[in-house]
Design a binder for these strands. Structure first.
Lengths: 137, 137
DNA sequence: TTGACCAATGATAATTGTTATCAATTAAAG
DNA sequence: CTTTAATTGATAACAATTATCATTGGTCAA
């Protein structure tokens, strides 16, 4: 990761590293906690700023949720569908061949110049389906 | 609109009426402003509470955005795709035949029990494409 | 290598959209 | 009408994020 007129600080490097390596889609708080070992004095504000910068460089995809913090995907920093477990909050990336057809249809149906999109499916993951739930008792 | 153990107040009626009649997808603030004529003393909190109640009755769809207030759709209170203009913030409902295939693929690919979904396309609407933009000068 | 400058940091205040609190009001049932 | 619990209005509290500002520290030129 090289910079375009931005200073390369240890803090930024650390955040970028975490984003690049995380398989699950971490939130700012999760990133902050992972940094506690190596950077105990690092401010939460710096985590926000670093993530914002990396996002502006197009190296991370931001997944905003209105009721809970944003999550970040550093592995596929371009729009793609997500499947989210409403129980354990895990996020998966499904392969959806029909997606191509759909985006074509959107342009045709709306006349918009489409810039980006957001596609989230919410449900119960296989693991959580296995566990007993409240309604069973 | 009848109630299931909830009192029918003028405020709730007014909010429900606005939600049912609005073609554009209004936010709480927009609803609040429309109410100023008939209910000048009505509290913003009551707007929030009324919308929340109506949502819990399944009569309105909530569209949450992390950076800007939520918007509401009282005409189609079930999950469906939206096309949103990033310039004027207008929201349209496109017809997307491929949607059926896509939801099938999600279930197959993820193993999730899908409960709901959220599908937003962001771009520039036809009207805003016509207007000159900053980059032109 | 050193020094200076300006961007970045840390700590915290401010902000925004939303929910909670609570005394006063009012819809609903008798 | 009266009673009573739900609802309202006003405002405080809240959570996630952004802004502020004095201090620190990368970076680059000498």
């Amino acid at each position: 990761m090289r910079e375009n007129g931005h200073k390369l600080t240890p803090q930024r490097l650390a955040v970028a590293r975490i984003l690049a390596r995380s398989e699950g889609h971490p939130g700012v708080e999760a990133i902050y906690e992972q940094l506690q070992d190596d950077f105990p004095t690092m401010s939460l504000a710096t985590v926000y700023r670093s993530v914002m910068l990396i996002k502006s460089l197009g190296e991370v995809l931001e997944l905003g949720f209105p009721d809970s913090g944003n999550r970040y995907d550093g592995n596929k920093p371009y729009p793609h569908p997500h499947v989210i477990c409403v129980r354990c909050r895990k996020i998966f990336d499904p392969e959806l061949p029909s997606l191509q057809d759909l985006t074509r249809e959107v342009t045709a149906a709306s006349g918009f110049k489409i810039l980006t999109h957001r596609m989230d499916f919410f449900g119960i993951c296989r693991a959580c389906q296995g566990k007993e739930r409240d309604t069973d008792r």
